[in-house]
Amino acid sequence: MKSVREACVIIVVTGLCGVIAFFAHPKAPAFHVNELEVELEEVLRFEEAFWIDARSDEDFEKGHLEGALSLNEERWEEQIVDFLDAWNPDAPTVVYCSSQACLRSYEVAERLKAELGVENIFVLKGGWEKLAEVEIVEGANQ
């Protein structure tokens, strides 16, 4: 019984730390990401789209959506120049990464929104796996 009480104390301390981290940790994940998400079916209805591949350089080299530009957090400073050269502000920007579990696309989309004020930006739900599933690209390479 004493152990259970002690465990409860640890859980309470942990909970407090978790709440503080949620508001103060610089890398704390967002609680709501759905507002950026878009289904592939919806993207296919866009007249045009500017595609961003947020996966690693290695994955991009193995295969990527035709016309997609590589932009990831690891090489942000170098790749952002290419992005600015190629970016079409009139077309919606759609970011994808490897799968639904991957958060890199959200990070890239949030950063483009915050740093460059890109408003018309979406994250592809399901990412590369979804593109492979409907055979827009060949095979999920993750």
């Binding site: 004493k2 009480r5 301390v13 978790g18």
Partner: peptide, 23 residues
């Protein structure tokens, strides 16, 4: 956010031998 702090607390309690039963 919760699991890392839980691991930190449990780890610290085990290493420093405090509230050992709960840890």
């Amino acid at each position: 956010l919760g699991v890392p702090y839980l691991e930190l607390c449990v780890g610290a309690c085990l290493v420093f031998r405090v509230i050992i039963g709960g840890a």
